[in-house]
């Protein structure tokens, strides 16, 4: 009897080590939004994980913009790879260097892969995720993408965890299916804080956290991206606006804020 208790304890210890190995290990995180959002997520999004971003077809620009921003944040100074397929160019246009540079993403860092089909895209994605020198990877899969099943998603997640390369899975026009992703988001464009004369201002996004592996989900935030400073701002933050006005004296006049502040979005 004593012998069996002994072996049982050994077995329990063994199981405990098996359990602990992948989950407890804390991965570094990157800033993915204003301070409040990062705090709610425990310091930002985890690096070396897969994060899914869903958007409808109409939200093409906003979804690609946010995915590129998160890729920029995750990748530090290392090269970034954006894998797309032939349909993406036809539907969404080609990445435009001058625009990316103005947006705050240096086109020099960006490699673009135009893959013939989804199968080749996923294969290239796994290979790219195994290369630790890469900063981050953006996988742009459109529509239903039946090849991206749980197995494929787990393969991506494993490769990302081993190498520490963050993978962002942009699913425009796709529906959530079970996956091994760390977080799942839905993104849409939000009205920008207008410049004088009703001109569109800095990019704004509405993001909703649909699912999160470890922690509560269902929160929503509104993000304002300040392309000049290269950081996420908050349109309601007075200090931020003052600085902007000081930087650009011409835009100092009547700076009206949008009706829907971040608090309105957070209720969801």
């Amino acid at each position: 009897m004593a012998e069996s208790i002994h072996s049982l304890a050994a077995l329990k210890r063994h199981i405990a080590t098996l359990d602990r190995a992948p989950a407890v290990e804390a991965s570094p995180r990157f800033t993915c939004g204003p301070a409040a959002m990062d705090a709610a997520l425990g310091g930002g999004l985890a690096q070396g994980r897969v994060h899914e971003i869903f958007a409808s077809v109409e939200e093409e620009g906003a979804a690609a913009g946010l995915a590129l921003l998160w890729m920029r944040q995750a990748g530090r100074d290392a090269p970034l790879l954006w894998l797309r397929n032939a349909t993406a160019v036809r539907v969404a246009g080609a990445p435009y260097g001058p625009g990316l540079a103005a947006f705050g993403l240096d086109p020099q860092r960006l490699l673009i892969g135009m893959m013939a089909d989804d199968a080749m895209l996923l294969r290239a994605a796994v290979d790219a995720l195994r290369c630790p020198a890469l900063g981050a990877l953006l996988i742009d899969l459109r529509g239903r993408a039946p090849l991206l099943d749980l197995t494929a998603s787990r393969r991506l997640a494993l490769a990302a965890e081993t190498s520490g390369v963050t993978a962002l899975l942009l699913r425009i026009g796709g529906d959530p299916v079970p996956s091994a992703a760390e977080t799942r988001w839905r993104v849409a464009a939000a009205p920008s804080a207008p410049l004088p004369g009703q001109a569109p201002g800095q990019s704004a996004f509405d993001v909703t956290l649909l699912r999160r592996r470890a922690g509560p989900d269902g929160m929503a935030w509104r993000l304002y991206w300040d392309s000049n400073r290269g950081e996420f701002g908050d349109a309601a933050d007075e200090r931020h606006d003052d600085d902007d006005i000081r930087d650009a004296p011409l835009s100092g006049a009547a700076f009206s804020l949008p009706g829907a502040g971040p608090s309105a979005g957070r209720a969801a």
């Binding site: 093409e60 620009g61 690609a64 913009g65 590129l68 969404a92 246009g93 080609a94 990445p95 435009y96 001058p98 625009g99 990316l100 540079a101 103005a102 947006f103 920008s192 410049l195 569109p200 201002g201 800095q202 990019s203 392309s227 000049n228 902007d244 930087d247 650009a248 835009s251």
Partner: peptide, 16 residues
Amino acid sequence: PVGEPGDPPLRPIHLF
């Protein structure tokens, strides 16, 4: 850069 510092991006990220 395109435009003045302080401007929002004046060129799109996707071009048709």
